[in-house]
Design a protein around this nucleic acid. Sequence first.
DNA 1: TATTGTTATACTCTATAACTATA
DNA 2: TATAGTTATAGAGTATAACAATA
Lengths: 162, 162
Amino acid sequence: MAESLEPEQLDTYFALMESVSLLHHAVEQQVRSAGGLSYIQFQLLARLAGAPDRRLTMTALADGVVYSRSGLTHQAGLLEKAGLITRAPSTEDQRATLVTITRDGLDRVATILPGHIVLVRDLLFAPLSGKDLRTLGDTMTRVRDHMRAQPPRSVATRKRQT
Amino acid sequence: MAESLEPEQLDTYFALMESVSLLHHAVEQQVRSAGGLSYIQFQLLARLAGAPDRRLTMTALADGVVYSRSGLTHQAGLLEKAGLITRAPSTEDQRATLVTITRDGLDRVATILPGHIVLVRDLLFAPLSGKDLRTLGDTMTRVRDHMRAQPPRSVATRKRQT
DNA sequence: TATTGTTATACTCTATAACTATA
DNA sequence: TATAGTTATAGAGTATAACAATA
């Protein structure tokens, strides 16, 4: 490896960032027009919908979606005010807040999901073969796991002492 | 193709979005701490640095980076106030504004770039083989071109008549 | 002493609509 | 009539620091 990115690496980096930027912009609009939510809010609900007992602690919920604690508190406040989640203190750890998705929250996800799936299929998967798909999934899973393993990544990371 | 996403497609979509989200967050911080710019501002400068004559019209500059005209005007205003670009009316088309990167702008890009490259290499490319890289580049280039070809994508797109 | 979560606050980004000017 | 760009403004997201409560 040299000290700079090969042209091939640079092209790959740019293609990746621009593709996902375009995809992000498109799904953001779909989620908002179909369900009146931001993509982040949709991701939080979708994560809760898939969780055991349909609930998670704030910290677990934030992981990978939101990068600051106050950001999550803000989003949770909005979702709670909209009746899509509830918050209650955990019995196991009195410090923790358990977030549970409501029936309305599940309905909202169900409303958004069909159009979301069509959009992602048309935009992301349409130009790919089955083999491309499997390879991309394998590659990005490896990348994600690698990034997750890097030192500072979670909301749980607090200030280092100066 | 069925009417829903295969589980494999869903996993791939999630892995892709989360990887890029983590990468985006990391590069955003690098660009800000190394050069005091947002990632968007860095992308705009980098695009200008690579353009013929180091200048572009506002519309050409926005393409793929910013999704509203006013957003670009805002960013250009910030970059101009920081002395990193200049704006001047085009002689060819009196409606157009030509944006040119200044010497300071080029220096700023040069200041940010080395650390940026190291970060992208460590975060994105470290877990990939040469073959993975080429395949990913090919795949995402195809995806990007496909998305770019979709109807509503550019800042140039104005309101449809109702 | 470290962790969970909230609050307050300030800053940035984004988007719409109204507007000017040129093609 | 359509396009390039700016302005004003309002809304949404984000982050830091200070804080309370629990482990």
